[in-house]
Simulated assay, not measured.
Amino acid sequence: MALKVIGAGLGRNATFSTKFALEHIGFGPCYHMAEVFASARRNVPLWLDVVNGKPDWDAVFDGYESTTDYPACSYWRELADYYPEAKVVLTTRDPDSWFESVSDTIFSEAMQGHLVGTPTGDMMQGAIFDFFDGGDIRNRAFMTDWYAKRNQQVIDTLPAERLLVFHPKDGWEPLCRFLGVEVPPEPFPRVNSRDELQHANSEEEGMAKTPEEAEAFGRRYIDELRAKAFRS
């Protein structure tokens, strides 16, 4: 199964909402960082191979038709080359809002600190943090400038007919038109606010430390958010 949609938007850019939206209109299952955790014993070694320059994209995305979120979004260029028929969706938001969101959630010491030196920590270092080229992820000016330049690079690299720059507030119409499918009657899914992720993190006392804990967390988190996704 080849990927049909590649999510180039960085984490904390409505990637969970977009995951559920893509699945709802026929482009699922959709890969997301939560899926990495949900099958951590299988997925983390595959991503460590990616980090070490030995990607097996067919194995990584076996059974999936689309992607959103980290770690796949870090490799948007490689995936666009490997799956030349796939369309690319770049979810965006205000750079300062993105910086505040990632700082309070997925880049926070509370979530990342205890992963240092573990396979999951090594994966996240290579697939996320190394892309900042040694810049200070706590520095607002550096991060917002990096964010804007990175998104512009996606826009400048891909042909317009292959790329949709998108925000869920735009609703179903632009996404469905871009992908050539009917607009569903349900409201566009809205999930995974900062408060929800921080609450999940506080319950877990940081990102899960063992593969077994990671898998239990990932499966539970996906199921809980899917149940909320289409509530109006």
Rank of each mutant, 00 (worst) to 15 (best):
E196A: 14
V183E: 08
D195P: 00
V191W: 01
R219Q: 13
N192R: 03
S193E: 09
Y221D: 06
A208R: 03
E204G: 08
Q198E: 12
R220L: 09
N201E: 11
A227G: 06
M207C: 13
R220C: 02
K228S: 05
P187S: 09
V181C: 10
P187I: 05
G218K: 00
S202V: 12
N192D: 15
S202I: 11
R226S: 08
G206I: 03
E203K: 13
A216S: 15
K228L: 10
P211H: 11
E213H: 07
V183W: 06
L225C: 01
N192P: 01
R194M: 14
R190L: 09
G218I: 03
V183A: 06
P187T: 09
A200C: 08
R219W: 03
R220F: 03
R190G: 04
Q198H: 05
A200V: 05
R190K: 12
L225V: 00
E205T: 10
P187W: 06
K209N: 10
E186K: 10
V191P: 00
P185S: 15
V181R: 04
N201D: 11
S202M: 11
S202D: 15
E204I: 11
E203N: 07
K209H: 14
P187D: 11
E212Q: 14
P187C: 06
E196V: 12
Q198T: 08
P184C: 11
E212V: 12
Y221W: 13
V191F: 07
Q198S: 12
A214E: 10
A200M: 12
P185R: 12
L225E: 06
E205M: 13
K228A: 09
A214N: 00
G206A: 11
R194C: 04
L179R: 02
G180L: 10
A208G: 15
S202L: 13
I222L: 13
A227P: 02
E215Q: 13
F188P: 00
E196P: 01
K228T: 02
P189G: 09
R220N: 09
V191S: 02
R194A: 12
L179Q: 06
L197R: 01
E213L: 15
T210W: 08
R220E: 11
N192T: 13
R226K: 14
S202R: 14
L179K: 02
A208K: 00
E196R: 11
F217D: 00
K209R: 15
P211T: 10
Q198N: 11
A216F: 01
E213T: 07
G218F: 03
K209I: 12
A227L: 07
L197I: 14
E196N: 11
V191L: 04
P211G: 09
V181M: 04
P187F: 07
